[in-house]
Amino acid sequence: MGSLARAVLNWVSGGLLDKLLGFVERREAQKLAALNSEQQRAHEDRLSARAAAKDIRLATAGFWEMRLLTFLIALPFLVHLWLVAWDTYWPQPWTVEKLPPPFDEWEGAILLSFFGVSVVGSGIKAVAGAIAYRDVGRR
């Protein structure tokens, strides 16, 4: 987050943003400090893997093939969602069955990832971890 945007949001929130971010930074720093060296290496490896995955997503985001592939993967789940909603709101003579395992458990996660919700959550965790790692590195 840019410093101007952070300052504006902090002013609008009456200082709540800085308090919240400070709490998150301290909490992550405490968690990281409590880890042993092997756990810290594992944490660094996870951060590196996330950064590499982000680089791959950014590098392939402009290709129409990736957008088509994402669409085709999400399409069956979206159609199922629409059919369930249609049958719920306007009962039909046919019924929509639930998806077979393991897709019945994954459908929500797939749909949320399609809309970027889980990516945003992971991004927030990654930023918090990066801030905590940066702060521990200064000590």
Score class of each variant (00 low, 15 high):
V84G: 00
E105Q: 15
V136T: 06
L58T: 09
S37T: 15
E105G: 13
R67Q: 12
F115Q: 00
D135A: 14
W86I: 08
S37V: 14
S113G: 13
L20N: 10
T60H: 03
P102R: 02
V119I: 15
F63Q: 13
G62H: 01
E28V: 04
E107F: 04
D87C: 10
G137R: 05
G15H: 06
S113Q: 09
I56C: 08
R41G: 03
V96W: 02
T60I: 05
T70D: 15
A49V: 12
A128C: 04
S3A: 13
Q30I: 08
F115D: 00
N10A: 00
L9G: 11
W82N: 06
V79F: 05
S122G: 14
R57V: 05
A128W: 04
A61K: 03
G108D: 09
A33C: 07
D18V: 03
R27G: 10
A132Y: 03
V79P: 02
G14F: 00
E65I: 11
A109E: 13
E105F: 15
A53V: 05
R6Y: 09
P93W: 05
H80G: 00
A130Y: 04
L111V: 09
N10E: 02
G137S: 05
I131P: 01
M66G: 12
D55R: 15
K98E: 15
G14C: 04
D87V: 10
L9F: 12
G123S: 01
F77Q: 00
E25R: 14
A130R: 04
L83F: 06
A42T: 05
T88A: 12
A33Y: 06
L111G: 00
W64C: 08
W86S: 06
R134Y: 11
P101L: 14
F23T: 07
L20A: 14
W94H: 08
A5G: 10
E38I: 08
R134D: 11
S113C: 07
A7G: 01
L21E: 09
F77N: 02
A85N: 04
G2V: 06
K31T: 12
G129L: 03
G15L: 04
V84M: 06
K19T: 07
R6S: 13
V96G: 02
L81I: 04
D135T: 13
F71Y: 13
W90M: 11
G137C: 01
L112D: 12
R138L: 06
W86Y: 13
Q30P: 03
L72G: 02
L69S: 14
V119W: 11
L21M: 08
P101A: 14
L47T: 02
P91N: 02
P102N: 00
W86P: 04
P91W: 01
L32N: 04
V24F: 07
K54N: 10
Y89V: 15
F103Q: 03
L32E: 06
V119S: 11
